[in-house]
């Protein structure tokens, strides 16, 4: 059991209103990712749920029980911190067993649980080491182990992978997803990296300046972003935004087209542009081109599409996948009036 409900939760630090008013429902067993740019209040929101900060207003319910004023330890949640926050003078065994020791569990039972967790996380050979003798990925796993043994009703992760190198981040992403599939415990995961959000989440919560911009599954957010912010934030490379005559001809203030929804050609097309940079990734190439009329556009093309800096290219947007936004930046729906 691990459902979390936020009702009109707000948080101010002195003068600064970091979180104005948030309502959110997290269901039991869900993998929820809070994603948003740096400083938008993701960590603050997570810390409010954890009880490490007091709310300025509103209510927090865990499993239907009001915990707004409860101490962190009483909420039955476990947190994995960005810095791992391992206890440096304790061995891995004692680090993982610490919450159990605090719960006054007997020594034999602690050892059994610690060894079981170490087994799941491939830490068995490192149990007698100190955190300083471990690599970044191993430390991360110890931090996760310390969270697992408590059998919490939900896990909270605050940017757990941001201190790891790219390759390790990919591996750990899989491991955490795998862990979620095994344990089926609610996980709340904070990141500024939309790739992490897209790959891991059951449900993504997009935050901007302390407000929820949109809640939905990764594909929902990708296919029908509710506004310009979500459209620009989700998806890589970023969606292209086009204003002016073309947008007006589609009855919109702004039209958005994802790089992968542009049809490229060397002979003919709706728009003409000059390639500025071609990023060859192998299977794909990201083309950055200066389109006559409205400036820089990014397109994603097959790796075989051989162009280089200075080449002329023609592109046509896939009209069925255009995103239209009104003058307030809100989405107008995908229906397009044929031009």
């Amino acid at each position: 059991m691990g459902s979390i409900t936020l009702r009109h939760v707000s948080k101010t630090f002195g003068e600064a209103k970091v979180i104005p008013d948030i309502n959110l429902e997290i269901n039991d067993g869900e993998f929820v990712v809070f994603v948003g740019p740096s400083g938008c209040g993701k960590s603050t929101l997570l810390r409010l749920i954890a009880g490490l900060e007091d709310v300025s207003g509103g209510q927090i319910l865990i499993n239907g029980k009001e915990v707004t004023a409860a101490a962190p330890a009483a909420r039955g949640l476990a947190m994995v911190f960005q810095s791992y926050a391992l206890y440096p003078h304790m061995t891995v065994r004692n680090n993982i067993g610490f919450p159990l020791k605090m719960a006054k569990m007997d020594k034999a039972a602690i050892d059994k649980k610690v060894e079981a967790a170490a087994n799941v996380l491939n830490l068995t050979d490192y149990l007698e080491r100190r955190p300083s003798q471990l690599s970044g990925g191993q430390r991360q796993r110890v931090a996760i182990g310390r969270a697992i043994v408590r059998e919490p009703s939900a896990f909270l992760f605050d940017e757990p992978l941001s201190n790891l190198d790219a390759a390790l981040r990919g591996t750990m992403r899989l491991e955490i997803s795998d862990l979620h599939n095994q344990l089926k415990t609610t996980m709340v995961y904070v990141t500024h990296d939309q790739i992490e959000a897209m790959t891991m989440a059951d449900k993504i919560v997009v935050l901007n300046r302390g407000n929820i911009e949109q809640v939905g599954s990764p594909l929902e957010l990708y296919k029908s972003p509710r506004n310009l912010f979500v459209a620009g934030f989700i998806g890589s490379p970023r969606m292209n935004f086009i204003e002016g005559a073309y947008a007006q001809s589609r009855n919109a203030k702004t039209v958005g087209v994802r790089p992968e929804h542009l049809i490229l050609s060397k002979e003919s097309g709706l728009w003409t542009g000059t390639v500025t940079v071609a990023e060859h990734l192998g299977a794909d190439t990201f083309l950055h081109a200066n389109v006559d009329g409205f400036g820089p556009i990014t397109a994603r093309v097959d790796g075989e599409f051989g162009v280089k800096h200075g080449d002329r290219v023609y592109m046509t947007p896939d009209e069925s996948k255009l995103h239209r936004f009104d003058d307030k930046g809100l989405a107008l729906g995908n229906a397009v009036v044929a031009a």
Binding site: G51, A78, M79, F81, A85, L86, Y87, M102
Partner: peptide, 14 residues
């Protein structure tokens, strides 16, 4: 002393 360590201990029920 790292404040995240203190918070981790707090969440661990210390």
């Amino acid at each position: 002393l790292d404040s995240e360590q203190k918070e981790a201990a707090e969440m661990d029920g210390a």
